[in-house]
């Protein structure tokens, strides 16, 4: 196996593993159990999509995909923080509502 063939095989195998990982992450988003579980899965999927963009940059040789990867990492971080704040606020809101009901 020449080095080029090994690299091509690695890229194919990497695509399979990364896509499998994204697909199985969606299983956790669908199943959930709690909002925090879904946010964790979403965070993992974002990082995996960054890895996907890196793989595609190697495959195509175009460095534009790295810009895409940086932007996705940025937006994914903001989304995770916003969702985590939302989950936290909803817990506090529920607690306050129950306290008002008790009074």
């Amino acid at each position: 196996m020449t080095p080029e063939e090994f690299l091509a095989f690695s890229i194919d195998a990497g695509f399979v593993m990364v896509m499998l990982s994204i697909g199985l992450g969606f299983y956790r988003i669908a199943k959930g159990e709690s909002l925090a579980d879904r946010v964790v899965a979403l965070d993992m999927i974002t990082v995996t999509i960054v890895a996907f963009c890196g793989l595609y940059a190697i495959l195509s040789g175009a460095e534009t995909f790295l810009d895409v990867a940086i932007v996705i990492a940025l937006v994914g971080f903001l989304a995770t923080v916003a969702m985590a704040r939302f989950a936290e606020r909803s817990v506090i809101r529920r607690r306050e509502a129950e306290r008002e009901k008790d009074q």
Binding site: S10, G14, R28
Partner: peptide, 21 residues
């Protein structure tokens, strides 16, 4: 070869993360 090895280990770690999730 170095790039291929890095890609393969990265893919394995992505799978491990999903398995943990």
């Amino acid at each position: 070869i170095l790039a291929g090895l890095l890609i393969l280990s990265g893919g394995v770690f992505a799978l491990v993360a999903t398995l943990g999730i």
